[in-house]
Amino acid sequence: MFDLLTQPVGLTHYLIVGAVMFVAGAVCMATKRNALGVLMGIELVLNGANLNFVAFGSNFLERNPAYQLGLDGQIISLFVIVLAAAEAAVALAIVLNFYNNHSTVDVDRADELKG
């Protein structure tokens, strides 16, 4: 595993950074009680995934054609970025609405629909 530091930077390095970001985002989504914190967790998850797409799409990191995504990877990550912007806008509008109605951003208090 410590070969990582002596080898030239390759796909694995990028994937590991992506994995760390993804896990950080997932943990963030699970632990934060602030609705905006949950939103930030989602952004981190999306970014981790994005990094993987870009790394797979980069043909100077990955020369094995079996794994190469080419520019498709970059275009997919563009779509992810744009959709993340849309998602953040809607989520923020919902959070602000929730804040207006309940004067709190604690997601644990959003339990009115509980059966």
């Binding site: 980069s58 990191l61 563009l78």
Partner: peptide, 10 residues
């Protein structure tokens, strides 16, 4: 990191 991977536009 995206820049380093050659994806300057992204």
């Amino acid at each position: 990191l995206h820049f380093l991977a050659g994806a300057d536009f992204v």
